[in-house]
């Protein structure tokens, strides 16, 4: 069971003077339970890509398979797809709208036509999973802090019990502590539920530290698709497409060039420290 993209193309405003190619021949297999980082500068096609994964956008040509079925076959249950592939948009707190936190999280499962008891149970569990305690359940979502609002928005998606969780820049605009909390939450959720997680991010440090696979988008195509240390080995090419590597990659590269035999693929402070200590000995 997995997500498969087979020769996916997407052209916005096809057939008009404004036509622009947003995705060009994307071929990807994302197996169950993988933690994938999706990077690319603004306009590289990341957002277009993720909106294809739960059927919000339809490819101009090519197919997308979820758990072995073509999601654009006639008769395919799109509603179920959208509960299985949960999408947390950028600044998801802007989409909170209910009178209290609990009702907001109930909205999604309620829409699935589940029984009231099941809806409430799911909302309760989802809020617990994201660390929102009962004292906040009946407060207006607008009275919460930025980080809390974002957790509530994530809970709204979790209450749909997705198999795949896609987060579009979930840490944007948060301070370092808020960022760390959200990333820890995602890592924990992934372990607890076995969900596939796709993290869209602008922070190279963030993806380097958390994901097991990085997909780099450029001009609507996949520029690199590999494990983090292999992708960041291409830091010069990444810079040319408006990205870069974590600072640690540049440090290790510079040390290596000045004759110190360090491991250039180290991505954490600890690994870099150990490698430098060995090289200095």
């Amino acid at each position: 069971m997995s997500i498969i993209l087979d020769h996916v193309h997407h052209i916005y405003d096809e057939g008009t003077a404004m036509a622009s190619v947003a995705l060009a021949d994307i071929n990807l297999v994302i197996p169950d339970g993988q933690y994938v980082g999706l990077i690319g500068h603004t306009g590289s096609g990341k957002s277009t890509l993720i909106q294809h994964l739960n059927g919000l956008l339809k490819p101009t040509s090519g197919s997308i398979y979820f758990n072995g079925e073509d999601i654009h076959d006639s008769g395919y249950n799109k509603k179920q797809l959208r509960s299985r592939v949960g999408l947390v948009f950028q600044y998801p707190e802007h989409q909170l709208f209910e009178v209290d936190v609990y009702s907001d999280v109930c909205f999604g499962p309620n829409n699935l036509g589940l029984e009231r008891l099941e809806v409430e149970l799911r909302a309760f569990n989802a809020l617990k999973q994201v660390g929102i305690t009962e004292e906040y359940f009946y407060q207006s979502p607008f009275d919460l802090s930025g980080g809390q609002k974002r957790r509530v928005a994530i809970a709204g998606v979790l209450a749909m019990k997705p198999q795949v969780l896609i987060l579009d820049e979930p840490t944007a605009g948060l301070d370092p502590r808020g960022k760390e909390e959200i990333l820890e939450l995602i890592a924990r959720l992934r372990i607890e539920t076995g969900m596939t997680v796709i993290l869209v991010s602008h922070s190279m440090e963030e993806v380097a530290r958390h994901v097991e696979r990085i997909i780099v988008m450029n001009k609507g195509g996949v520029a690199y698709d590999d494990h983090p240390s292999a992708v960041f080995g291409h830091f010069r090419e990444l810079e040319a497409i408006g990205l870069g590597a974590p600072q640690i990659t540049y440090i290790m590269e510079a040390l290596h060039q000045s004759g110190l035999a360090v491991d250039r693929s180290a991505l954490s402070i600890e690994a870099a420290r150990d490698s430098i200590l060995v090289a200095l000995r």
Binding site: P176, I251, I269, A272, R273, I276
Partner: peptide, 20 residues
């Protein structure tokens, strides 16, 4: 204070603690 320190500063700090 929950502030981010640049990786190069953190790494130097760690190395110093390890006896460099």
């Amino acid at each position: 204070l929950h502030l981010d320190v640049p990786q190069v500063t953190l790494l130097a700090h760690e190395l110093k603690k390890s006896g460099i």
